[in-house]
Design a protein around this nucleic acid. Structure first.
Lengths: 221, 221
DNA sequence: AAGTCAAATAATATCGATATTTTTGGAGAG
DNA sequence: CTCTCCAAAAATATCGATATTATTTGACTT
């Protein structure tokens, strides 16, 4: 076939490529919630065969970004206030657990990683919004990854993505930056570096709750 | 093809059938942890094509029962003490959250459902072990389903299955019944019916911790 | 004119075959 | 005797085509 030896940045399997692309399209809202996802249509859009598309959709099902309706194909996961609030609640519960475990295992290497991620995030915020999103997620995941609890990390990552989807849907993904989010990140970082689990979780949950309330408002209108 | 109008119990899609069968094989340990899962081999075993097998494996990946190694196929998820303890910890955290939410929404219909499930479980315990396993899960899930938090329920269901897998691997799935598990279930049920969230969660977590310790011992030997 | 059933249409699910990649096994060099 | 590299074998990933199932359209009945 046409594998493009090493010309463009896309390698690995067609399935994985389709997975990443579809995920992006759903997260950003380009494929809107509850939209029917027809194989043929996606096959043309992604310029690949039906099998990779099908498998990518199966994988996205586990991320709860796609729903499979038994003999009736796939559709982008629907959205709703109840769903949003469940995501918010689960994030608070799970990230608190993970952050406390991370701090319990705190060491110099982890602190270095945190400081670095935080710095990269601040640098990226001045450039492209897409870069910032990646760096923002990397910082938040770095807060949790010292727990060494892979399943918990996976849940948190999934929930992070689901949450970001609501941000894109509500306002194109940029408007939440109006709040002084840098200060909030700084407080979380400082508390983590001080190994103060109570302060860190308080700041983290407050961070989520306030963005949550902002988005909840947006959804009512 | 050959769909067998309504002769035997298997209907829906070949993918779904393969999913259920493979899941059973992995949960019971007939497909042992870390075993390579070759498409051709499974295709013959399940008497179906490669596509349904492939898709079923993709779905099982989301249940964390199968791992996909990028261009190298699939394997049954490996096991280990750290993994087991993470599952146990997550179950305690998530089921406590779900049970408290369930009790908060308590009403007569839920109580009826609980009593019924509990009764069915006790009846099933005298018959086949496989029946009991189903009824046992149904009872535990009924404790949680009044929370009306579908994602949380899904996580709990997943973790339940992962846990049961360790039981099968440790002792063929029946030996844990030596403990007086009926009394433990009764205390949880009673507390839930009294809408006493603290007591119910205490009993539930104690229930998990003690089976957890039992299995943890088994894993050391 | 509204509702219902049947044929036509469209989309999904599945199969069989092929191209690609990984793994294996062995020959030759150091 | 061990290591490296290359060819053969096996397994995966992907494609194109077909069978199956859902959906729509339109004619016919009440």
């Amino acid at each position: 076939m046409n594998v493009m030896p090493d010309s463009d940045g896309k390698e690995t399997s067609a399935t994985h490529g389709a997975y990443l692309k579809l995920r992006e399209l759903i997260l950003t809202g380009e494929l809107p919630p509850a939209q029917k996802l027809k194989i043929e249509q996606l096959r043309k859009l992604l310029e690949t065969g039906a099998s990779p598309v099908r498998e990518a959709l199966s994988l996205l099902t586990s991320d709860m970004l796609v729903e499979r309706i038994d003999q009736r194909g796939f559709r982008a996961a629907p959205v709703g206030k109840a769903n949003f609030e469940e995501i918010l609640m689960l994030r608070c519960t799970l990230e608190e657990t993970a952050l406390r475990a991370s701090i319990r295992n705190a060491d110099a290497k982890w602190e270095d990683r945190l400081v670095l991620r935080h710095h990269h995030m601040n640098r990226a915020s001045q450039r492209q919004a897409a870069d910032f999103e990646d760096a923002h997620k990397a910082f938040h995941m770095a807060l949790l990854d010292n727990a060494h609890l892979p399943m918990l990390e996976r849940y948190c990552s999934q929930l992070y993505d689901l949450n970001i989807r609501y941000r894109y849907l509500a306002a194109g993904g940029a408007s939440y930056k109006k709040r002084d989010i840098a200060a909030e990140h700084q407080s979380i970082l400082d508390a983590a570096l001080n190994r103060d689990a109570d302060a860190a979780t308080t700041h983290l949950i407050e961070h989520y709750r306030s963005t949550g309330e902002y988005l909840s408002q947006q959804m009512d209108s």
